[in-house]
Design a protein around this nucleic acid. Structure first.
Length: 506
RNA sequence: GGUCCCGUCGUCUAGUGGCCCAGGACGCCGCCCUCUCAAGGCGGUAACGCCGGUUCAAAUCCGGUCGGGACUACCA
């Protein structure tokens, strides 16, 4: 039994979104669960779409999620390079051999002609697909096309009849009839190579023995399997590898088996794509979701631990994950559940850890410098326990505590209108005096002041504390007031309370 | 149009002939608690797409039907 070798191979265009991340995660979980190898490969064979920024973003998002790879960009490995644009000589050598062996043939239709053919087929109520028009072209015709300046593509000759069975770890055996599989392109007119070729060559060359990928590729699997057979026949691939200075395949390499994963869909039930708003992994990071929680919830999209608890650490996921329990129906990525799980995980963080995690978000909001002063760090540490119960994401802490880090606060108009009226002026005057005179600057002592005032003035706590809250925080919402005030500089608090009296409506 | 896949509460799912008048989680609703916002406690809402069949018994098996999706690219 060879050691499992799995891979994640995104095309670097756009951001890594949760669908891709889920595919990456399942491969990673399987590798870690079985003690196998997780390969990360960049499939940038389509130069018109691939961008270096996207590749960097993918790598960053993978690192953020904690999906470390054993072989791939930045870590290298024995079967590299792991970026397909650096392997084009290999693909060229393979397709030349395929042509020499008669497995592929040159076809000269222009994209426009093909499009026209498809439309004609559609109109006639026939399935669109390459009809095999340029199979077995007479030499004279071929030369005539060349003389016209046409550049051929290379197409694989697919069987005309018979069936092929794909044994899928998730779907079980799925049968396809070869007559439904049209001759497909492996080499474009510009001599670059398509996904089919590059992907099959690399999976074989890198000894990948299990391909877990999105459901949308299930019907492409017969083509893939056909290519495996072609590449392995007469040592075609092995020779190409040796001729071009690539490492030989692992000695125990076997063609991969498959596991197709149900698609992740958006709220509209359409498959996820770049068009869908905030589904990029990086966007979830910016919003303050913890990577472990993202991993947890992603794992639950399509896989179930059975009757066991759904909230799991990454280690528990690795231990329990299995392909057998991957489902077959498309899942909607539920951000409400993500929020809930995230909030729960935040509650498990201790003060120091929470403060540390919060810091980058305060940095990004311009509330803290890159390197916080000891005073700022103490303040944040003191705020942590007050924040823990009331934030679902790390970014949600920012508006709640911004007033603690600013020199001046602007009073929210709606909050002023609602709370700085009636007896608020009287309340603020007394509060300012008593807070200024308070012996011990602590949460309990401050609460004592408010309670005393409430009793004397015959007001509820709310009537006393809300005006003060608005005065100091500028908003009607903040962490618990007495404890928060205790963390701030007393002079600042008193000054803000006095200043606010001017804003009280007559 | 063709091929393939899928169909359990709003969502993700558990469920492989009786343990299911269907369980969990998230959401939602109500009550309690409360200095705001939360959190917490308690309670509640809600699903086997439909029609036939097999069987003593079906969410589970079979047939059909309807609905959704993928593929059908010189994208991956």
């Amino acid at each position: 039994m060879p050691v499992p070798r799995v891979r994640f191979c995104p095309a670097p265009s756009g951001w890594l979104h949760v669908g891709g991340a889920r595919t990456a995660l399942y491969n990673w979980l399987w590798a870690r669960h079985t003690g196998g190898v997780f390969v990360f490969r960049i499939e940038d064979t389509d130069a018109t779409r691939a961008t270096p920024e996207s590749m960097r973003g993918m790598i960053e998002s993978m690192r953020f999620l904690g999906l470390d790879w054993d072989e791939g960009p930045e870590v290298s490995g024995p079967y590299g390079p792991y970026v397909q644009s650096e392997r084009s000589d290999l693909y060229a050598a393979v397709s030349a051999k395929l042509l020499a062996a008669g497995a592929v043939y040159d076809a000269y239709e222009t994209p426009e002609e093909l499009e026209e053919q498809r439309q004609a087929q559609q109109r006639a109520g026939r399935p669109p697909g390459y009809a095999g028009g340029h199979r077995d072209l007479p030499d004279a015709q071929r030369e005539a096309f060349l003389a016209e300046g046409r550049q051929p593509v290379l197409r694989v000759r697919t069987p005309d009849d018979g069936v092929v069975t794909v044994s899928d770890a998730v779907y079980g055996p799925v049968e396809f009839a070869w007559k439904d599989v049209a001759d497909f392109v492996v080499e474009r007119a510009d001599r670059t190579h398509t996904y089919y070729l590059a992907n099959a060559v690399d999976d074989l060359a890198m000894g990948i023995n299990l391909v877990a990928r999105g459901d949308e590729l299930l019907s492409a699997t017969p083509r893939q399997q056909l290519l495996y057979g072609l590449l392995l026949r007469d040592n075609l691939l092995d020779d190409a590898l040796a001729d071009n200075g690539y490492p030989a395949r692992p000695p125990d390499a076997v063609p991969p088996s498959f596991a197709h994963l149900p698609l992740l869909v958006g709220e509209d039930r359409k498959p996820l794509s770049k068009c869908h708003g905030s589904v990029a992994v990086d966007e979830f990071r910016r919003q303050g979701y913890l990577p472990d929680v993202l991993v947890n919830v992603l794992a639950l999209c399509g896989w179930s631990p059975g009757a066991a608890e759904e909230r799991m650490t990454v280690d528990e996921l690795v231990e329990r994950f299995s392909l057998e329990r991957v489902g077959r129906n498309p899942a909607y990525f539920d951000t409400a559940k993500l929020r809930a799980f995230n909030g729960d995980r935040i509650k498990e963080l201790d003060d120091a850890e929470l403060a540390e995690r919060l810091q980058p978000y305060l940095n990004a909001a311009g509330l803290l410098p890159e390197v916080a002063t000891p005073t700022q760090q103490r303040l944040l540490l003191g705020l942590a326990p007050l924040l823990r119960e009331r934030i679902q994401t790390l970014a949600e802490a920012v508006p709640l505590v911004a007033f603690c880090f600013r020199e001046v606060v602007e009073l929210d108009a709606a909050a002023v209108a609602k709370h700085l009226k009636g007896r608020a002026g009287e309340v603020l005057d007394i509060a300012a005096d008593r807070l200024a005179a308070l012996g011990e600057w602590s949460g309990d002592a401050i609460l004592g002041v408010f309670d005393g005032m409430a009793a004397e003035l015959g007001l509820g706590r709310g009537k006393v504390m809300q005006p003060v809250r608005v005065a100091v925080a500028g908003t009607a919402v903040s962490p618990p007031l007495p404890q928060t005030l205790a963390l701030l500089d007393r002079d600042v608090v008193v000054e803000r309370v006095r200043a606010a009296t001017a804003r009280v409506a007559a």
